[in-house]
Amino acid sequence: MMHIFAISLIIIGLYGVIFKDNIIKKVIGLSILANGTNILLIIIGYRSGGIPPIATLSNLADFLTSAVDPLPQALVLTSIVIDVSVTAFALVLCYRIYKNFKTLDIKKISNLKG
């Protein structure tokens, strides 16, 4: 059931990247898209009735039967870092494009064609 949330975030992000004309809106759409994918990755690791994946000496039996999967959480940490750096670079690029082209509209930033 919770997969619906993540997939709807992905669809909203894709809509923002493909159909919006302002380049800053495209970067925001990209950020939403990446976050939706990260949330989907965490939801994949969920086990119903799960406890956090921290194993101490006293709850080893509970850990084996009902802890959520810790591997997607490690993957998501890496992915969040990558998305932050891409978004930071994209915003700096938007600033440079504004200084150079004097506009933020993608229809006017299309000199290379054919």
Partner: peptide, 15 residues
């Protein structure tokens, strides 16, 4: 042209 090419590749590569 460098900035435009970089932005295009950024969006498409990230998607």
């Amino acid at each position: 042209e460098g900035l435009e090419a970089s932005f295009k590749y950024l969006i498409i590569g990230s998607v």
